[in-house]
Amino acid sequence: MITSAMGIWNYWIVFILMMIGLFIVIGRKNLLKKIVGLTIFQTSVFLLYITLGKITGGTAPILTENSSTIYSNPLPHVLILTAIVVGVATTALALALVVRINSIYGSIEEDDISAHDLIDYHDQNNTLKKSILQNSK
């Protein structure tokens, strides 16, 4: 039981990281922490792919003269190289947005921001009501 659980050790790590990441994305109200969560979530998927490619006793896929060498599957590594690039782009864009949000709202807490938006909304409605009143006069 324990040995079989230990044999899939990497998958346990993947599973735990995935859940931690997704929880942070959903549960935290801080915009920056959400990005941290997203990165952890994506990293867990990278680990999943790398684990899939590993073969016990396999080495890097470089041709040797010994024909009986076992190679690990290189394809998942290549895929994850692409996925990492995509992940970096996502993080960069998200961070850029957070910088803009911070400079405009003065906060990166979701609650503060929605409070600001609510005030804006009421202000708009008040000016609207005033303009309608003026028109009707």
Binding site: M18, L22, K34, F41, L48, A94, L97, I101
Partner: peptide
């Protein structure tokens, strides 16, 4: 300025969706 919040939410939810797709493909 709410466009920024809209974009941020779109990005985070979209990225989670895309990552789900990648898990499935894996």
């Amino acid at each position: 300025r709410q466009a920024l919040i809209a974009a941020y939410n779109y990005l985070i939810i979209g990225a989670v969706g895309a990552t789900f797709y990648v898990i499935g493909v894996g």
